[in-house]
Design a protein around this nucleic acid. Structure first.
Lengths: 345, 345
DNA sequence: TTGTAGGCGTTATCAT
DNA sequence: ATGATAACGCCTACAA
């Protein structure tokens, strides 16, 4: 009684021997797509043997042979930004039901890390990439696109690069925010933009200028944040305040930047919305419990992820597919951080 | 001029041909550990060729041959719980610098999903697992342990299973919370525990009972939440309130459960901390900006991840290593959600 | 120092 | 319907 493969995990060969068939037959029996090629009786015997041995197929060997992996990579710039976890779940909900695994990687907004992680994903033969780290100028993504890598952008885009993308409707969202403030009577509205090297930063910033001009207001109260973070939001507001205090409302590039404003308000004894109103962007979780509850522009985060996943599946199924962009609606959520401006001193 | 491998990604064989050596030599030249076996001149030629062709090693083939992958799996129950992203970063910070890739999977607290994802990780030959989904009774983890799978638990443990674990010091944290409330004059303190099927839920609950008894207080104001969520926290508080209103403080099983209390306060017009004080657990981000800012027990989330990663590396390097548990200190962070109890009516 | 050869576990293409 | 065979790309004794 010889066991050619003691102790170690059973292979297809072990299953085949136990079932008294050739490995090729065992392979066909275990794969639903080829199962009908063999007799029901044999198939049953093989499956029983596999069950009995606790056989688990070796995905690595399969990937080597087929150069496919049933895996896609999801590239996130900063997992601690509450915007992203719901997007991740949206992506997973679609991809999992289609039999794909999702490999999440976190780049921490670091180019080198991004390169290394994407390279690692590719060397593992992921079948596609969903990328949330795009910058307007992004040599790496450009290069991947030229190499024909299947990918979909989410939330942000790359300038002049025809890659499919799913994003929120930034312009409409910002316009709604400005309209809300103008309607409350604000006439001096500032914008703390996100990094202008990202499409979201630039688009929201441009939309802001257009919107305030449409209301006949000045469009020069704009400061750029170096990153999408609370600290950078606070720094930007401090910089603005050192230049002028002649504004009564702030449209923040996103919710984290808005939270940075809260820090500065606390620091300087300013009241929100009494002295200054603030609007965020994204409607990340827990904003309704802040002091004050943050008025913000909601984007459908789960849907964003789900749609990007569907789009990626389409791209995988139909490689030559022309890129298309999907814009998901953004809606203003009014809470307690916005009110009429204080009466002019 | 024959190109046996047009258009497709270059393989080691292509590099070898370009450099005029055998694949074995090319392999040795490209691997730092074997590079010294060959002449500097040859090594240089191979590396130049690899560079010129844009050669990227195929990790799948390498894994199949070596049955190693330089990859570890990180199993998270709920990525949208802000406790976890900082832990993820802690894990990555250690593992990346050691040349490992981290494959993050999200189980959504679903057993079936957990099984499928862990199976997928294993079939890809991950070299170890860091698991944050442990329940006290966890057949899957028990089975993996019996199969000798290298893993480390984080945040939670499995009952009577000698797997290395890194957790926060729940008992001390809860004791500090109760001491703080007792010191403020509270004598009727409730506990909304997390699921008692998790070690964190059970340990914190037991610690709560011990602590209140140590202060000579009643230990029967305890309700269990079905899950670690805001909704379940709210439901538990409603259930408690329907039983009795004779308490002035709540120790919540974690921050999300505490946020659920905030919902109920708003619903019923209760003032916090005026009518009821609340303490959370974990010190997830943004709690300082809540209304009121949440007093909570802070655990070193990044450190938790980093230590678990170090422990996993140790386990990988030294397979027979006896399991050890690491308990990281938890500290009370006093904010605005706790105050002296209202004067008795 | 370099080349040879075999095999990791699977699937695809033959042939039977 | 099933078996034989080769190959995916890489690594590593072993031989030279």
């Amino acid at each position: 009684m010889s066991n050619p493969n003691p102790s170690s995990a059973p292979t297809l060969r072990d299953v085949a021997e136990a079932a008294g068939v050739h490995t090729a037959t065992a392979s066909r029996a275990l794969n639903p797509k080829t199962r009908q090629q063999i007799s029901a009786e044999t198939a049953r015997r093989v499956m029983r043997a596999a069950q009995a041995l606790g056989y688990q197929p070796n995905s690595v060997a399969r990937s080597l042979k087929t150069s496919r992996s049933s895996t896609v990579g999801l590239v996130i710039p900063d997992l601690t930004n509450p915007l992203f976890p719901p997007i991740v779940r949206g992506v997973e909900s679609v991809l999992e039901s289609d039999g794909y695994n999702v490999w999440i990687v976190n780049t921490d907004n670091d180019e080198e890390r991004e390169r290394a992680k994407i390279e690692s994903l590719r060397s593992r033969r992921v079948e596609g990439l969903i990328v949330a780290t795009a910058r307007l100028d992004h040599p790496l993504l450009r290069q991947l696109h030229e190499q024909g890598v299947t990918m979909v952008l989410i939330n942000r885009q790359v300038r002049d690069l025809p890659i499919p993308a799913v994003t929120g409707d930034d312009a409409t969202g910002i316009a709604a925010a400005v309209r809300h403030l103008a309607g409350l009577g604000h006439t001096r509205i500032a914008h703390l933009s996100g990094p202008l090297g990202t499409s979201t930063g630039l688009v929201r910033s441009q939309a802001f200028r257009h919107a305030v001009r449409d209301h006949g207001l000045a469009d020069d109260l704009v400061v750029e944040c170096a990153r999408w973070s609370e600290d950078d939001g606070a720094a930007a507001l401090r910089a603005l305040l050192s230049r002028t205090t002649d504004f009564t409302a702030v449209v923040a590039g996103n919710d984290l930047i808005a939270l940075g404003c809260y820090d500065v308000f606390a620091e300087r004894g300013l009241s929100c919305p009494g002295d200054i109103s603030v609007i965020g962007f994204n409607d990340m979780p827990f904003l309704d419990k802040l002091r004050p509850p943050l008025t913000t522009v909601a984007v459908p985060r789960h849907e964003l992820g789900a749609e990007a996943a569907r789009m990626l599946l389409d791209c995988i199924d139909e490689p030559g597919r022309p890129a298309r962009s999907l814009l998901l609606p953004a809606t203003l959520v009014v809470r307690g951080s916005t009110a009429a401006p204080p009466r002019r001193a």
